[in-house]
Amino acid sequence: HEALADIEDELAGLEAQAMAEQQRMALKQALSELPERTQEIFRLNRIEGMTHAEVARHLEISDSSVQKHLSKALAYV
């Protein structure tokens, strides 16, 4: 019974990994369809962890522009 439980646990882990990979690929595909600036802002904020203000300063745009791009990206993905 213990060996079967271990196999089931391993299978569940593999299924979770496969699902996570599918989600990453779907997100990557969706983001690739957005304008480059929107992709960059999403990456800086959501992946690199920069705040809206930091992104705005880094790209020399307004905070409201950052928010608009992020809203667009999040609504799309």
Rank of each mutant, 00 (worst) to 15 (best):
Q67H: 08
L31K: 02
Q22N: 13
V77R: 03
L11E: 07
A56P: 03
E36H: 09
A20D: 15
Q17C: 09
P35T: 05
A73S: 00
E33K: 12
M19I: 08
H52A: 14
L11D: 02
H1L: 14
L14P: 00
R43A: 14
A75T: 12
S71A: 15
I47F: 10
A3N: 11
V55L: 00
E40C: 11
V55G: 00
E2Q: 12
K28N: 08
G49S: 02
V66L: 01
S64Y: 07
A75L: 11
Y76N: 11
G13H: 04
E21P: 03
S64F: 05
K68F: 10
M19E: 10
E60C: 06
Y76P: 02
A73W: 01
P35H: 06
T38Q: 02
D6G: 06
E21H: 14
I47D: 06
A73V: 01
A3G: 08
Q67W: 05
L4V: 13
E48R: 15
S65M: 13
A73E: 00
I7L: 14
I61Y: 00
H69P: 04
V66E: 00
R43F: 12
Q67I: 15
N45Y: 08
A3M: 09
Q17Y: 05
D9A: 13
L70S: 01
A16I: 06
D6N: 07
A16L: 08
E60P: 04
K72T: 12
G13M: 06
E48A: 10
A75I: 09
A5H: 14
L70P: 04
A20K: 08
L44C: 02
A12F: 09
E60I: 05
E60H: 11
E48M: 07
I7R: 12
E10L: 14
K28S: 14
E36M: 14
Y76I: 04
R46E: 09
E40D: 15
Q29Y: 13
H69Y: 15
L14E: 14
A18N: 05
Q67F: 04
L34F: 03
Q39Y: 03
Q22R: 11
A30S: 14
L4C: 07
E10G: 05
A73K: 01
E10K: 10
Q17F: 10
M50V: 05
L70K: 00
N45R: 11
I41S: 00
K72I: 07
I61K: 01
N45H: 12
S71L: 12
Q29K: 10
